[in-house]
């Protein structure tokens, strides 16, 4: 068993050594693992590849495909879809007595506010409307100068904001919440899905893609490179 492992190790090392010879100009640098604090030497990554910690297998660095332009395009698309999901009725709902109720996304929050649950209204408003908007605007403000190859002095402040906001945006959770409540209502009355609902679903999907393509370690590194140019 041990022999086999040694052989495998040598084999992997030989592949690795070849690849370093091919790309002798690559820089390597020290990265501390965020999860277990192991100090690891990482050579520069190819696009679309990741480096993991050898001790705890946490992701150390990821270099996304398409560089800056991919998250930029996605976040502009997400902002557009967000505008669309506010412009049209979210869904309409027909009760037994012929009443019809149409609601939009903002209506949702206003209705909560009217029912003496201001704090709850504020929570939903924050998690589903304000924070995602803020996140996307800040992301676009960061990425536009970077795509042009400029180093913007506001980057540190905005980048800190973006990465602090990311876990608090719950657009995807809200989407699942809507689906659950739809099935709950459907036993009581007829529900029709509006145009905004579809665009909101696409918005949630696009938003998750933006979040996953914004790698903190990589983005700061890319910005730093611009500075030294």
């Amino acid at each position: 068993m041990a022999l086999y492992r040694d052989f495998l190790f040598d084999f992997l090392m030989s592949i690795f050594e070849e690849s370093t010879q091919n790309t002798s100009g690559r820089e390597s640098e020290l990265i501390a693992c965020h999860q277990c604090d192991l100090l690891v030497e990482v050579t520069e990554l190819e696009e679309g590849s990741k480096a993991h910690c050898p001790r705890c297998s946490h992701q150390l660095l990821k270099k996304p495909k398409g560089g800056v332009s991919r998250p930029l395009a996605l976040s502009i698309a997400a902002l557009g879809l967000f505008g669309l999901s506010n412009a049209f009725p979210f869904m309409s709902f027909k009760g037994g007595a012929g009443q019809e109720q149409m609601i939009t996304l903002c209506h949702n929050v206003m209705e909560l506010y009217r029912h003496d649950s201001q704090l709850l209204a504020l929570t939903v408003f924050g998690l589903v409307i304000v924070l995602p908007c803020l996140y996307l605007v800040a992301t676009i403000l960061i990425l536009v100068p970077m795509a042009k190859g400029q180093r913007h002095p506001n980057f540190p402040r905005l980048a800190k904001l973006v990465f602090a906001l990311a876990p608090w945006v719950m657009v995807d959770v809200f989407l699942l919440g809507i689906l659950v409540s739809l099935t709950k209502i459907s036993s009581m009355a007829k529900v029709e899905i509006g145009l905004s609902f579809i665009s909101f679903a696409f918005f949630a999907a696009t938003f998750s893609m933006v979040v996953s393509s914004m790698n903190k370690e990589w983005l700061w590194r890319a910005w730093e490179r611009l500075e030294t140019k």
Partner: peptide, 28 residues
């Protein structure tokens, strides 16, 4: 962790949608 918020959102959506002139209503 964040997926636990789902129940809160369900209540929020139900409150907003089911307001039918006093016949059926949902309050948080």
């Amino acid at each position: 962790g964040r997926w636990s918020m789902i129940d809160v959102f369900v209540v929020a959506v139900l409150v907003a949608m089911i307001q039918l002139g006093g016949i059926i209503a949902v309050e948080p």
